[in-house]
Amino acid sequence: MEARDILIRPLITETSTALMEEGKYVFVVDKKANKTQIAKAVADIFNVKVEAVNTINVMGKVKRLGRNVGRRSDYKKAIVKLAQGESIQFFEA
């Protein structure tokens, strides 16, 4: 799996912004990617040292509009902790 296929987009929310203080960056990643692959992808693309990766599978919510039932897509969320002193400029800019 290619590094750029693994990381789909950064996830920027109030919580994720707060996590940046601790050197943790949150991404939406490919469902099939594992922690090692994610760690490598982040390290390669942003040229940083990764300390740890935590992942969560987020289930899409069931939403209805009238009698139509729909489902938001599931996605995998990865919280990547970088080594002390490292940062990803992409998020800051």
Partner: peptide
């Protein structure tokens, strides 16, 4: 701004 409550988004965003 999606992902943030009102008034909570950082200046950059």
């Amino acid at each position: 701004i999606p992902g943030f409550r009102r008034g909570k988004a950082p200046r950059r965003l």
